[in-house]
């Protein structure tokens, strides 16, 4: 049974975020709980933002990955309303990957921003609305690159 749970958990972990190819939904901290009862798997997840348009695709990808595991017939996916997603759910190595690959950064715990391109601290917020619900816009005055911030 535990072996099956491990395989299901691994299958969930293999699903990538549609907007960050190369980053799994588990690494982004979206997966809260995985359980298996008989041939039925259930996956509980937390959205970064409630109105995120990717939720259906993510759920579909999870169902496809999990029902491909031998021994699983059905997979229920549930989006939880609590706990809410916070940025400390993102694995530290993923933060680095987001910075180097996507020029997307996270605010430091003291509220400051560090430029993911040049490492400078002179990053200022430019707009609370980015191209995605979960991101705001900033700009580095040193290397003059626009930066996006997960929020």
């Amino acid at each position: 049974m535990t072996a099956l749970l491990d395989r299901v958990t691994a299958a969930v972990g293999s699903v990538h975020d549609p907007e960050y190819p190369g980053v799994s939904i588990a690494e982004l901290g979206l997966v809260e709980d995985v359980a298996v009862t008989g041939d039925r798997a259930s996956v509980q997840m937390i959205p970064t933002y409630g109105g995120c348009p990717a939720l259906n695709f993510i759920a579909e990808d999870v169902r496809t990955a999990v029902t491909a595991v031998p021994g699983v017939e059905v997979c229920d996916v549930e989006w939880l309303r609590s706990p809410i997603w916070t940025q400390d759910r993102v694995a530290p190595h993923v933060v680095q990957f987001l910075e180097s690959e996507f020029t997307v950064t996270l605010r430091r715990t003291d509220g400051t921003l560090v430029c993911p391109v040049c490492g400078s601290g002179t990053v200022r917020d430019t707009s609370p609305m980015g191209p995605s619900r979960c991101r705001s816009l900033a700009y580095c005055d040193d290397c003059r690159n626009p930066v996006e911030v997960m929020r």
Binding site: C52, P53, P131
Partner: peptide, 10 residues
């Protein structure tokens, strides 16, 4: 809605 926000953000 989300696509509109994406394009304007881009």
């Amino acid at each position: 809605l989300a696509k509109t926000q994406d394009e304007i953000g881009h």
